[in-house]
Design a protein around this nucleic acid. Structure first.
Length: 612
DNA sequence: ACATACCCGACACCTTGACA
DNA sequence: TGTCAAGGTGTCGGGTATGT
């Protein structure tokens, strides 16, 4: 993770125009500016008049510098922290003479930077840029004026030459698909053969390349359709995988963007013919395309606000009510509360299960948890729910800042940016004012509503910034090329698309290419191995449990014997104590008799003396 | 007063088409 | 072909209207 010193270094006075998050500036000790900082000299990034295009290919130096900055600054950051820090990266790039906009840097990050091995806990990401330069004398390294060169070297990892085999590194963050591909030595010869066919960039795609691209995409999309366990990928994520696969399997060196473009082209060609020879596009379709296809069901069902209001009005005029509130039955409510106590962020699976169990819509289930997170319910109001408490991922979250008072509204509207503060320590938590009733991991899961510095956004000042806990640098960022696997869960195919976009299938695939079958088979084999491993663990633990139970039984008998002895001894002790007490009493009586006799003796002696 | 449903904006991520 | 800007989409939190 980037230290504060590093961040300070990245907020040079030489760039006071940079509209960094005010709180970050405060945290970094940058010269304070009055109010919100103007959005700099890059006015042409987002809306409005089209800016002059600056479509200049990233040079190797630029990419190296960008990657180096990413390594130096972004490792260990959460996604949202990264999104903010990208502004810093942009500024640093400018200070180094590389004039790239924030969005350019952002796209560079999402396009390739995030797939650097540093963000995958090791080598062999789905796609990797040029290896990090450890040579401080290199032009790029020298331009990146790091105050902590040792850290830079430490954070850079070896060149991700070859992906490890599944057996060697089953959970190292590499995707199954990549690991399998790299492990398959038979493809080496194919690569050699293919190199002659597809030597590199700036060359028209050969039919061979198109064919292989089509095979891979079709294979994966078919799996998505036919295998429920396969996570669905967005085009971009898929093309990252496909690009790597083309290289690993066939030696075809094509960028994800190139793959995407060609694939789209193939799909468009297919759609244009009555009997598409080329497989249909299964990737998400644009609205226009859907409209052209005339499939209304494929069009987004998102209503406009006007439509919503109209529907609301219609309902109200018809029924007298805007909507009907359906109350949860006590049993259902209890079940929901139990789930909410486990986590306020149930998985999609859990939500679906609850919807099934409670015969409710997914929407209502989600609303319940949303409201629960907002503290709308009595059971969440005064209780620090154990949300995520069982989740080791967030177990080390620090508690909220103490002493925060006031409603959410007042916090949201009353706070100023300087209450957002990047911690200066390793535990990069912000000092965030939050309502005391708010579950802490609410903040851990989201980073919403915060000013994002110089992006020109119109976030109102004072919005609460939620910060995620520091990401384990060993874990992949986006997409997780391998699921975190603390329990040895089955390896999964690459990450699904985060959205639920409708995928269109206008035809059918009759076959999956053999290599893809290999991949699936290997994935199944991996999973079976995991299951076998679990079985062994279960058997082992059962054996130990039986032994322990036997020991308990033996110990129980010994304990019972001892208890009997103890009881007898206690009875003996009691008898002895009674005997002692009785004898002590006798002794007391004897003392009294002795004293009495001594008194009588003295009396008689005095009488004798008197008579004399 | 509390529960529920809905609205809205921010955000991350993605797609698309234009351009060099 | 790679890069860019623009815009779309889904999710979420915060806020609030409405019902019970």
């Amino acid at each position: 993770m980037a230290s504060t010193d590093e961040l300070k270094d990245l907020s040079p006075d030489a760039h006071p125009h940079v509209a960094m998050d005010a709180a970050i500036q405060t945290s970094l000790g940058a010269p304070s500016s009055t109010g919100s900082t103007p959005p700099s000299s890059t006015p042409s990034t987002s809306h409005g008049i089209n800016p002059p295009r600056n479509s200049v290919k990233w040079t190797g130096d630029e990419k190296d510098a960008f990657n180096e900055l990413c390594r130096k600054l972004l490792v260990g950051m959460t996604t949202s922290q990264i999104n903010r820090a990208l502004q810093t990266v942009t500024d640093r790039m400018k200070s180094m003479g590389y004039h790239k906009t924030l969005q350019q840097c952002r796209q560079q990050w999402y396009g390739s930077g995030r797939f650097l091995p540093e963000f995958h806990g090791g080598p062999a990401g789905p796609r990797v840029m040029s290896p990090p330069s450890n040579d401080d004398a290199s032009p790029v390294a020298s331009r990146i004026n790091t105050p902590n060169a040792a850290l830079q070297v430490e954070k850079t990892s070896p060149t991700p030459a070859a992906a490890p085999t599944p057996a060697a590194a089953p959970n190292n963050g590499a995707t199954t698909i990549s690991r399998v591909a790299a492990a398959d030595s038979q493809h080496v010869q194919q690569r050699v053969n293919a190199e002659a066919l597809a030597p590199g960039h700036n060359k028209t795609w050969s039919s061979y390349e198109r064919e292989k691209l089509s095979e891979l995409v079709n294979a994966y999309r078919s799996e998505e359709l036919n295998n429920g366990t396969v996570q669905k990928l967005g085009n971009q994520a898929l093309m990252e995988i496909i690009s790597g696969q083309l290289k690993d399997r066939h030696g075809i060196d094509r960028t994800p963007a190139g793959c995407s473009k060609i694939w789209r082209k193939l799909a468009q060609e297919a759609m244009g013919s009555s009997a598409p020879a080329i497989p249909p596009m299964l990737s998400p379709l644009s609205k226009d395309t859907k409209a052209k296809l005339g499939d209304a069901a494929l069009l987004t069902n998102t209503k406009t606000n006007a439509q919503n209001k109209k529907a609301l009005q219609a309902r109200k005029s018809a029924t007298g009510k805007s909507y009907q509130i359906i109350r949860w039955s006590p049993e259902h409510k209890q079940l929901l509360i139990e789930e909410a106590k486990k986590t306020l962020y149930p998985s999609e699976e859990t939500i679906n299960r609850l919807a099934d169990e409670l015969q409710a819509t997914v929407k209502r289930i989600k609303e319940f948890f949303s409201n629960a997170r907002s503290g709308n319910y009595s059971f969440t109001k005064n209780v620090e729910l154990g949300d995520g408490a069982d989740d080791a991922e967030y177990a080390d979250m620090p508690s909220n800042s103490p002493g925060t008072k006031g409603s959410r509204k007042s916090l949201k509207r009353g706070r100023t940016d300087d209450s957002i503060n990047l911690d200066t320590d390793d535990d990069d938590y912000p000092l965030v004012l939050r309502p005391p009733k708010k579950p802490r991991t609410d903040a851990a899961r989201t980073m919403r509503n915060a000013p994002t510095s110089a992006t020109g956004d119109d976030t109102p000042a004072g919005k609460i910034k939620m910060i995620l806990p520091p990401r384990d640098p060993a874990l992949p960022l986006i997409p997780p090329s391998q699921p975190r696997n603390p329990l040895g869960e089955a390896p999964s195919l690459p990450r699904k698309s985060p959205t639920k976009k409708v995928r269109q299938s206008t035809g059918s695939f009759t076959s999956i290419d053999s290599q893809s079958l290999d991949r699936v088979e290997r994935w199944k084999a991996d999973t079976l191995l995991m299951i076998k491993d679990c079985d062994e663990t279960i058997a082992s633990r059962k054996n130990i449990k039986a032994q322990t139970l036997a020991e308990i039984s033996t110990d129980d008998a010994a304990a019972a014997t001892l208890q009997t002895k103890i009881t007898a001894l206690q009875q003996q002790l009691l008898a002895l104590t009674n005997s002692i007490n009785a004898k002590k009493s006798t002794v007391g009586d004897l003392d009294a008799q002795i004293n009495k006799a001594e008194l009588r003796k003295k009396h008689h002696q005095l009488a004798l003396e008197y008579e004399d």
